[in-house]
Design a protein around this nucleic acid. Sequence first.
DNA 1: CTGAAAGCGCTAACAT
DNA 2: ATGTTAGCGCTTTCAG
Lengths: 339, 339
Amino acid sequence: MAITIKDIARITNVSATTVSRVLNNKHEGVSLETRQRILDTIRELDYKPNAIARGLVTKKTNTIGIIIPDISNQFFSDIARGIEDGASDHGYNVFLCNTDDKLDKESKYINALKEKCVDGIIFASSSMPNIKIISELIKGSIPVVVVDRHVEIENVYGIYTDNFRGGYIATKHLIDLNHKKIGCITGPLGNHNSKERLDGYKQALLDSCITFNEDLVAEGNYKINGGMKAAEKLIRNKQITALFVSNDLMAYGAYKAIKAAGLNIPEDISIVGFDDTELSQIIEPELTTIRQPAYQMGIEAERALIKIISGKSVKDRNKSFSPNLIIRKSTSKYQAKII
Amino acid sequence: MAITIKDIARITNVSATTVSRVLNNKHEGVSLETRQRILDTIRELDYKPNAIARGLVTKKTNTIGIIIPDISNQFFSDIARGIEDGASDHGYNVFLCNTDDKLDKESKYINALKEKCVDGIIFASSSMPNIKIISELIKGSIPVVVVDRHVEIENVYGIYTDNFRGGYIATKHLIDLNHKKIGCITGPLGNHNSKERLDGYKQALLDSCITFNEDLVAEGNYKINGGMKAAEKLIRNKQITALFVSNDLMAYGAYKAIKAAGLNIPEDISIVGFDDTELSQIIEPELTTIRQPAYQMGIEAERALIKIISGKSVKDRNKSFSPNLIIRKSTSKYQAKII
DNA sequence: CTGAAAGCGCTAACAT
DNA sequence: ATGTTAGCGCTTTCAG
């Protein structure tokens, strides 16, 4: 049997209340002498207050939940690391939940987290209509911040990268390099962020008076294979000279397809990716890409959640981060070929 | 105020005890009729039992902690995913803790997890002497399994890859390809697993009667840069024809160094990596490497922990996984050069 | 088949 | 400055 507050009380000849007071650093409600005596025996016996019991009475567990599609995905593990670092600094522990974007898993975890009385939840989901779940969450009046998504729900806060802008600056970079025939490999278009990136691409074209051509767009799946297939399709018969690929993984697939077709990057086709994963510096040529501040988003999400939990008001419902263009070796100026 | 078991009891005209019985599926202690009535109002009111209160009395929280150096590291996030998947299947939630291998963080998290009454802990640490901490853990008699490390402590279980064997088969592959001058880039040698891999390399050499040459070994840091520097050192003046690199990241660095020196892979230098990260299929030439079953190790670690928690005996203190050689394009038969 | 009572380990009024 | 009492929401004897 673990040692309890009563044990400490008995041994130090005080009441449990007094021990509780020193445990919680209550402002000078205890004489210096007894406080010291209590502190000593606590140390001596290596007593640890039972957070479960404490949570039951205070209705505060110092625990938050983080619900994401997949911790194995570098983007989410960076976010998770940011969240956990922040949480740890603020005295919170973090429950990790992987949903694979499955609705049933999402709601299962939400229930579990509610039962375990977490103080708040940070939620990420790629599939669009999970607003339903989120609102169910709020129904239970538990603080929520949504990460990687702009959000328009009362009492829910959103931390996200401006994906539209990401698509825009990626494409603009290509346009600035004189490219006119710019292809686009998108993520699954049922996915909100994928659409935003595509919209950014379109807008950049529009702003430069380049007519949008649907044939130059191919839908991928955010995986290497999907990028490869989409690229194969786009380079066949089309005379694209550049490609905006909605994530790095698909860009790697595109590399494969392009090289397999005997073309060179960037001489024949310039490529811009999205995410700036570690590999993009390793692959050859090094990938020009759009960086999302994943870790920082995690930090901010946690910060916002703590604010809400402690009843402070958060000024804006949404906070967006600006993606950055990281120029490396996979893009170059378009030169009309001399045949 | 959330709705409690008493509310359900009052509304259904039974005692809390009876509600508790149906909540816990007590074997037929309740008439079919009342059981149904209770179930109905539970559903109707969307009542969720408070796991905190339950945990306080049962001394069982259905929660485990996972303490790892860094969730952003692909190897650990794969392990974590395996653990979490298993835990979820068994009705457990997991606390995520990142330590960066720092002793103070490790002990801070251990205390926090104890206070939160986790049912068990899965622990990974690269720095060697954390046995102390682990034993402190046991002192509190909480079930522990150590992952990514062989372990010789009573009541502590180890799940790990056989790193010695990994180093061995990597080197053996090179030897089978006729290489004699085989270099080795190690991880930090203060790290136990790094040493094991190096020992495997030495043993393979020995078994093939190739004299070990200390000059052909360079210590790295498991990062790209370290691999690059170590490779630069090894290819300068040394006539190595092959290289065993203790992780993929350093292998990527070695690629850079080798290409920068105007050499070709595998024609001039064959390379074997370690880990089989996703990139190894993307980089050119595709990397021959040693795969660690990280996800599977997570699954097994969780399984072992659950066993211990539920009081079942685990037959072996340690369970090792065999690493696999994945042959791709970065290794080829050594041919004496015709000058 | 059902309920009353006690208590898990702690904190929060309310005394004194 | 300290203690008494009550109770958080649940499970667990023990009766009936």
